[in-house]
Amino acid sequence: MSPLLTVRGLSRSFGGVAAVQSVDLEVEQGTIRAVIGPNGAGKTTLLDLVTGFTKPDMGTVDFDGHQLVGRSPRDLPSLGLMRTFQSARLVPSLTVRENVMLGAYRFTRARFLSDALRLPRTRREERELRSRADELIGFLDLTRFADSRATDLPAGAQRLVEVARGLAGAPKLLLLDEPAAGLDDSETRELADVLHAVREGGVTMVLIEHNMSLVLAISDQVTVMDAGKVIADDVPSTVREDAAVRKAYLGVAS
């Protein structure tokens, strides 16, 4: 079975500085892949290249049989690829529930006229959308925020809303950009449980993360980046012992 996501030779430089340098990456179906590395290692740039926010200078991104390079980020939800952001991009004036409902927007088949006339199908869809959103909100322990304006939440909670929104889209692949930043230890543990359960549900994930305990707890495979290059790519236990990794990233931590 071929990998769900295959990145080949992906490169991008900004003003002569190579932010991402011929990165290869394969993510197997149903696994969690963590990408770690020090600040400025090129992790978020890699995510931006995969999702079309930044155009690569070179390389290819193959997702579920689709070539992603050259596509607009807004085309990805319909392919089954959702992502979250380091600083959450929620819709400001909508509530948490409404933001999560938006994630499933592409599934609604009702069209304007039936919406305007409030036909039964529309109402049924609306009801289903809402209950699915509430389910996900409960799953991520955000129920107490459901009716708050999304952007009034603390940054950490906003990222969780993004996770819920991403899941609402029933993605094949979910790309998470530092979902645990700003969460305390117990919250992080909860998040680990959630992501675990998500994987059990068959969703493949790529996780960019600083929090090593989270990474080591949940990922199946870890990619380590430094100065735009992949310096290691292995299972968590091996990566933890890798000398280059320890030097580049874990040096102080170990």
């Binding site: 991009r89 819709v91 400001p92 927007y105 609604t108 069209r111 304007f112 409030r118 869809e125 609306e126």
Partner: peptide, 17 residues
């Protein structure tokens, strides 16, 4: 009360998002 309405409000609030 409709999901097109939700999408319209989302567009109004932040077209990019």
């Amino acid at each position: 009360k409709t999901d097109i309405g939700l999408a319209m409000r989302a567009t109004a609030s932040n077209p990019g998002a």
